[in-house]
Design a protein around this nucleic acid. Structure first.
Lengths: 205, 205
DNA sequence: GTCTATAGGAGGATAGAC
DNA sequence: GTCTATCCTCCTATAGAC
């Protein structure tokens, strides 16, 4: 027994945190592999190596498991945005973000959630951590988009919100997995292809 | 009783065909509304107005219901391709096809299937009508893409298969529903926005 | 907080009468 | 081929002992 109850408590909390991190990592991977509907809670428990009932002591529902994974992804996005070179142009930053999200997707680290499931949407919208992260990321990207449009680098005739959605959509673009399944290109080539179609378009220039 | 067994048989077949058409239409709508996983067979039966067991006399599984809907969509796509103005350029035809698919999606007539579900994939790949249609449509689009690339209208540095996937992806682009939910634009404006990001890209020209 | 065991229910598919 | 009634599997969630 430790002589210091504070240290002891902190240690227990660390163990708790570590276990929850393990759970969220597993959920993140399974969500990326098979999507929300196909992922079962039994499977998560088995992969983490604990009983299903123990999972429910940490997270009250399957939806909250997915929300926790999304919170983690949002945190990573915020960290990535914060780490962007300050002297890069707004367009270069946006390009870097899109490259990063596509890399996550190809690496099997991007959770894929059905945009239609209403109970999941409700849980996500009710999760303050997730919503705060989403709003922060959207605000920062939106600011970059407007700067890039004023500089004439991003088409100023497109509504900024349409540009934002288009960038978000690249994070779950089926073209990535199709090209990967084709086996003709490696991950880096695939990313550059989709970067080209996204920013340059299909038309010749 | 009809005096002519041939007429009688034909009539019965017509009734059968009409009922199956009603089933497929309902499936198509439900797949567009809620996706494959969220659509239940009970729901399909209730919407058609027949018992669930009767459904299974027409189609052996839920996957085959979805496949039938996809066959119908493929037929519509083939008809659309056939009806394209012969004097239009390859690029104009491609643009018309993409516009048409996005219109279907916004009208709630484009079935949305999970690209991950393996049993569904198996059923689809085993469905000759679907596969024949898919290959025919892909061949025709592929030919247009190569022509447009040789004419210098589509970026020749992009692999044709990447262009094809990019066009297919516009038929299930979440940007369409996001912009629709925003309520700032009507369907036609949304289509023109996504047409612009697809062919012209996000960059200013 | 971890476990075993099970409740509870949704949903795909079928039996059997007509 | 249509119906009613039912089976059966899978999956989320919880009870209750330790």
């Amino acid at each position: 027994m430790s002589a210091n109850p504070i240290v002891k408590l902190s240690f227990k909390e660390q163990m708790l945190q570590a276990r929850e991190d393990a759970i969220v990592s597993t959920v993140n991977r399974l969500l990326a592999e098979k999507g929300f509907e196909a992922m079962t809670v039994d499977e998560v428990a088995a992969n983490v190596g604990i009983a299903k009932a123990s999972l429910y002591k940490h997270f009250p529902s399957k939806e909250d498991l997915a929300a926790a994974a999304m919170v983690k992804v949002m945190r990573r996005a915020q960290d990535f945005l914060t780490g962007l070179a300050a002297n890069d142009s707004a367009l270069d930053k946006l390009r870097a973000v899109v490259r990063w999200t596509m890399g996550l997707k190809l690496a099997g680290e991007m959770p894929s959630l059905p945009s239609q499931n209403s109970t999941l949407r409700t849980t996500l919208m009710g999760n303050k951590d997730y919503m705060d992260g989403l709003i922060d990321v959207s605000d920062r990207l939106g600011a970059m988009i407007e700067v890039a449009q004023k500089e004439g680098l991003i088409n100023p005739r497109l509504p900024a919100i349409a540009v934002l959605y288009t960038l978000y959509a690249r994070a779950c673009d089926p073209v990535l997995e199709f090209l990967k399944m084709g086996g003709q290109h490696n991950d880096e080539q695939i990313i550059e292809l989709v970067m080209s179609t996204c920013f340059d378009g299909l038309n010749a220039r």
